[in-house]
Amino acid sequence: MILNASGCLDALTAPDVAQQLDCFVTKTVTPLPRGGNPPIRIAETAVGMLNSIGLANPGIDRFLVANLPELAALGLRLWVSVGGFSAEEYARSCALLDGRPEVEALELNLSCPNVEEAAESAAQIVAACRAATTKPIWAKLSPANWDIAASARAVEAAGADGLSLVNTIRGLALDPRTNRPKLHTATGGLSGPALKPIALAAVFQCRRASALPIVGMGGVWSGRDAFELLAAGATHVALGTVLFGDPGAPTRVAAELRAELARFGLECPRDASGIAHDHALSFQPPLLL
């Protein structure tokens, strides 16, 4: 299935974009309301986009009262992205969402590069949330983690039901006129085409390390990009930065993905998932004489 990357689409302002997706993922909700970071919040680079939005959101209490009913009225399959600054905060939000039947799953944002991280490890946060909800939990991990496979194994052991790979990776852009950082917070999260090989590597490594299903995301611009994430081991694909320039991307990418699957005689995305590994394992370099 094709989803959006959390924070890259507001279904309430662009419902017709959200309705092209198989499932909508909300912008991350934190325990308290957050206005987000001061401008400038975004900058373009030659190979991607930097953002430092800072988890702007209405807070979990207002989200439950105001946003969730409106989202539910759109009739979308709905995942809620949950953020926090301690395991307890994550768990409290998960508990509040647990009883809401309109929410299909929870994605834990364990990796926003623009806010201070929780002191606990990803696995500790997952464990706390696992105790707070029976809904499926997807752990969204950072590609900045050198041993992401170890994190995947740890969150799997802690009770995660799936992996979301990857969040943005920290980057910096300078203003050529002033030589100062373009973003108010100096650094931001890099997304777009530059992230694709990084996402592919993360998905590839985690597929080998864990049996969990994977939402692959990072620089998907075309059906071929989506196909490659599946081949590396993803079971689903999410669209992020591409949505900004092309609100028709979900329909387009889905069509291109079908064509790409057909090109290899594959019937559905599941058939493509992980095929890069088969190839990698069976590939024999030719003998050099």
Binding site: G36, R41, E44
Partner: peptide
């Protein structure tokens, strides 16, 4: 004017203070 990635409320890049709240200029 503000930096905008999408123009339709998706990116939150253009948020500025409007009527005492942080809101998206594009919307």
């Amino acid at each position: 004017e503000a930096p905008m990635a999408c123009g339709y409320g998706a990116c939150y890049g253009c948020a500025i203070e409007i009527d005492g709240e942080i809101k998206r200029l594009c919307i």
